[in-house]
């Protein structure tokens, strides 16, 4: 059988959609199941069927009420505050240091860069208790500080990515700006930062997602329920002594992953452009 080129392409496209689209179900199943669960009556939320027998949104209203008069409005606000500030801080810190590691020259530069990369190996668990004791001595426990500030410390991966990116920006731009009387800081803000956009978005999305999901740190440091983020609130639905309201839990879990999914869809293009590998060595 002889197919023309365009027929071949068409066939390929169909095959692609059938395979990839079919496989999609397998990837999306848990999400769909959870959304279905959030629409079922609470007692049936765990049943295996994907289609809720009677669509109802009660779980969302009930779940939104939260616990002891503190609603999910508060939890979401806290989550946005924590993840938002951590993200902005991380982006600034990472891009500052990336600039420092590439466009300035100072004693110990190589050493600090190596240290920075090496921190990727440090497991977070090792730091938990010493950090707690330290923050407690500083009087920070109960506030957002110990939750947010350590998360501003750039993940080495992102500083590394930014270093790669800054290296890719021609130094001629810097020199031209310097002749125009621009300081290093001017160069950073006027030339480097705008060019870093894709990698800033990449770093930002991941930091946002990680901070958003972090459960242990806020649990250890926040004392007042009105400061709890969503990640803690979701865990409060289950208790060994009581019936878990699965429907409400699924409803709120779904709402809680929406921001990440939206960010991902919206910024997908940058996400891939933000990872530059030219000249890994």
């Amino acid at each position: 059988m002889n197919l023309t080129f365009s027929q071949k392409e068409k066939l390929k496209n169909i095959l692609f959609h059938v395979l990839v689209g079919g496989f999609c179900i397998f990837m999306l199943y848990p999400l769909l199941w959870m959304v279905a669960g959030s629409l079922k009556t609470s007692g049936n939320a765990l049943s295996a069927t994907l289609w809720p027998e009677a669509m109802q949104f009660r779980n969302y209203l009930e779940g939104w009420k939260g616990f002891g008069g503190v609603s999910f409005l508060t939890f979401f606000r806290n989550s946005f505050f924590i993840a938002g500030t951590a993200t902005i801080g991380q982006i600034l810190l990472a891009s500052f240091s990336a600039f420092g590691f590439t466009r300035t020259r100072f004693i110990g530069q190589k050493f600090w860069f190596a240290i920075m990369i090496a921190t990727v190996l440090v497991p977070g668990q090792i730091l938990r208790i010493p950090q707690y004791i330290m923050f407690n001595q500083w009087g920070w426990v109960g506030s957002f500080l110990p939750v947010i500030l350590p998360q501003m410390l750039p993940v080495p991966f992102f500083t590394f990515l930014m270093v790669q990116f800054v290296r890719g920006i021609p130094t001629e731009l810097d020199e031209a700006a310097e002749i125009d009387g621009c300081s290093k800081f001017g160069i950073f803000f006027k030339i480097i930062l705008p060019n870093l956009k894709p990698v800033l978005v990449t770093a930002g999305i991941f930091r946002f997602y990680w901070s958003w999901n972090d459960f242990m740190t806020p649990l250890l440091y926040l004392q007042n329920v009105t400061k709890y983020p969503v990640s803690i609130a979701l865990k409060m639905f289950s208790d060994p002594n009581a019936i878990t309201n699965w429907g409400a839990m699924f409803a709120m879990t779904f709402l809680s992953i929406l921001p990440t999914i939206i960010l991902f869809i919206f910024f997908q293009r940058y996400l891939i452009d933000g990872v530059a590998f030219s000249g890994i060595d």
Binding site: A94, F99, F101, F106
Partner: peptide
């Protein structure tokens, strides 16, 4: 240089 990496 150090000012830039200082926050980190």
């Amino acid at each position: 240089g150090y000012v830039f990496i200082l926050p980190w």
